[in-house]
Simulated scan of single mutants.
Amino acid sequence: MQFGIFSVSDVTTDPTTGRTPDDTERVRSMLTIARHADAAGLDVFATGEHHNPPFVASSPTTLLGYLAAATENIVLSTSTTLITTNDPVKIAEDYAMLQVISDGRMDLMLGRGNTGPVYPWFGQDIRQGIPLAIENYALLRRLWEEDVVDWEGRFRTPLQGFTATPRPLDGVPPYVWHGSIRSPEIAEQAGYYGDGFFHNNIFWPMSHTKKMVNFYRQRFEHYGHGRADQAIVGLGGQVFMRKNSQDAWNEFRPYFDNAPVYGHGPSMEEFTATTPLTVGSPQQVIERYASMRDDVGDYQRQLFLIDHAGLPLKTVLEQIDMLAEEVVPVLRKEMETKRPAHVPANPPSHAERAAARLEDAQTRNENEARDEIHA
C-alpha cells in the first residue's frame, strides 16, 4: 500500500507569530517538503492545482518536473489536475512530458476543483462542470492512446490529424485517478474506464465516503475490469501529531481555528469527530486510519494533508518524520496482513503496465500468426 502526502499550497499567516510567507517562500517550502518526504521513505507526493490566492500551486507539472530531478523514489502526482478548465490537449502533452522526464515515476488525479470562479477565468461555464469532465477526459484518453486524432465535441475546436507530443513513455499513458468528493458521475467515469478513484474525504464523514467508494467498486466490476474488491481506491486524510496527545491538541488548535480551508466553522472537537482529521499521538493516528479498511475495504493509496493552515516548515518536516518512522510502518503491516492475495496492494506502476502492454502485443501477434497458418 502507498502512503504519502498532498499539499493544497495555501499561503496562510501563522496565527502564533503573525508571520505570513510570500509566494516564493511557500513554493520553495513545497519543494523542501517533497524532497524530505522522499528521503524519509514515503511513497507519494501530490500537489493541488489552484489559480487564486491564497494558493500558489498554479503549475503542477513545473513543480513536479523539478522534483523528478530532485528526488529518487517518490511517486509524483497531483491532487488535482483540473480536467474542466484545462485544455485536454495541453494536459495530454504536459503530463506525457512529465512521464518521460520522471521515467514513469508519476501519475495524476483529475478533478473539477473547488473554486467556482476558475471556470469563467478559463472561458468555461461552471454549470457544465460534469459534461466538461466527461468530454475532456474522453478526448484526453484518445490523445494518449492514438497517434493521430480526428475529433469534434461541444467544448473546444475540432481536431484534424492531430498528434500530441511527446508520445507516452513506452506507449503507455500515465495512470489516472478520478478525484471526487460528492459526484457519482465521476465515480461512474472511473469505473467505466477501469481507472483509479480517489475520494478526498477530508471534509466528509466516513458514511459518505463508504457510499461513494462502494458505488465506484460496483461500477468497476460492472464494466468488466475485475472484481469489486480489486478496484483501485485512494483516500485523503489530515493529521497532526505529537508524542503526547494533549500537546498535539494545544499546538494545533490555533492553526485549525484560523485555517482558510475550515477555520471559523465547526470546532476542532466537532471536526475530528465527523471527518478523518486526527489530532493526537502517532498511536491514535494508527488506530483511526487502520479502521478505514472496515468501511471502504482494502485500498491502495492513503495521502495525508499536513502542510497547511500556516504551520511552520520545521513543524511540517517533523510531521513527515513521525509519519514515516512511527505511523506508516505499522499501518502498512496491518493493511497488508489483512489484504487478500487477489487484491492489488498498490496502484499499477508504469513498469507493470508497460510489461502488460508488451505481453498483450505478443499474444496478439501469436494469434495472428496462428490464424494465417490455418487460413
Rank of each mutant, 00 (worst) to 15 (best):
L98T: 07
T80H: 08
T47D: 07
D23M: 09
Y95A: 08
N214A: 11
D125M: 04
V8K: 03
E146R: 14
D107F: 10
A369E: 12
E325M: 09
N52H: 15
N73F: 00
L42F: 06
V172W: 03
D87R: 00
I33K: 10
E251T: 08
I83T: 11
F55K: 05
R364T: 13
R182S: 10
A57S: 15
L303R: 05
L143V: 02
V343T: 14
R217M: 05
S79T: 08
K90E: 04
S267G: 09
H374P: 00
L143G: 06
L277Y: 12
D360G: 04
P88L: 00
L313M: 11
D170F: 03
V261P: 00
D294P: 06
T85M: 09
D257R: 10
N52Q: 15
K210I: 01
T85A: 10
D23E: 15
A351R: 07
I306V: 14
V27H: 15
R219D: 05
T78Q: 09
S29P: 01
I320A: 11
V149R: 01
S77D: 12
M97S: 15
T16P: 01
D170E: 02
P260K: 02
P282A: 14
D125I: 04
A248W: 01
I33T: 12
G226V: 05
T274C: 04
P15V: 06
F155V: 00
P166F: 07
Y66L: 06
D23R: 11
D43S: 10
W177N: 04
P166A: 10
E366N: 14
D38V: 06
L63S: 01
E372L: 08
S281T: 14
E49D: 12
P173F: 07
P340G: 11
H308G: 04
T12Q: 14
S267H: 07
K90I: 02
I320E: 09
T337D: 02
A309N: 10
